[in-house]
Design a binder for these strands. Sequence first.
DNA 1: TATTGTTATACTCTATAACTATA
DNA 2: TATAGTTATAGAGTATAACAATA
Lengths: 140, 140
Amino acid sequence: MRDPLLKYPGYILRRASTAAMAEFASRIVVLGLRTSEATILQIVAENPGISQSALGRMLDIQRANMTPIAARLEARGLMRRLPSDGRSLGLELTDEGHLLAEKARAIIDTFETDLTNRIPAEHRAHLMPALLALWPSADD
Amino acid sequence: MRDPLLKYPGYILRRASTAAMAEFASRIVVLGLRTSEATILQIVAENPGISQSALGRMLDIQRANMTPIAARLEARGLMRRLPSDGRSLGLELTDEGHLLAEKARAIIDTFETDLTNRIPAEHRAHLMPALLALWPSADD
DNA sequence: TATTGTTATACTCTATAACTATA
DNA sequence: TATAGTTATAGAGTATAACAATA
């Protein structure tokens, strides 16, 4: 049994990414969070007052899909949505949201360290710049 | 607006992968194929007679999810499912399937070349071994 | 006119449980 | 007992269209 696609970086990128994402999801779920929610908590903690739309643009999540995610975080008491300019909602974490964001950050840190340690030392420094070059949105 | 996760390779891996996958999907859809279908055509072309289960294990697709995918490819006249040992189905491409697999392969090749060319030369050779180290299934 | 947030809807991928048939 | 294939079902992510309210 031979996989003729193993020589393609895009294919390996996809396989490695889905495997890594599944592992991260299994770690972050102990906080009752999905990957996207954990990410959003970090972004909003760092950018209080950011609008739903701006957050969505940052994460490549569309407005329409942002609505139920933000509403769920608000319903859980982790985030507030405050009207800012009449049509926009400024997002900020509650105290409870900040606490959970910190716990999530610890899990993220450990995960990322584990991931980095799996990379042979001679390739380690090259992964990030190579991936950034593949990610067009990084230039926006 | 600042993304505090931009320094994490796992996060960049996820963002780069979803962007690349979306781009590939938009290219392969002109053949009426999804990414998973294009992949399966390549694997079956290279491994005629492979069972659905073995194919699923190779691609991290579960048996239960393999069934409708294989049935759809068969219904389109691209693949045959021949009983092999009574409980297994051996997969092989039809002539039409081979033709489409070749067209898909051309799109894959162009896509992968484009992707590789985006990586700065000094990092290019390091991406594949770094990703393979992150992908545990590669060792199975 | 453009943007924000919302609702509705649909498609894809993924995960689990339960079943039959066969090794 | 273990494996192959199937069915049903649910969760999650993503995409588009249309709408009201506001800039």
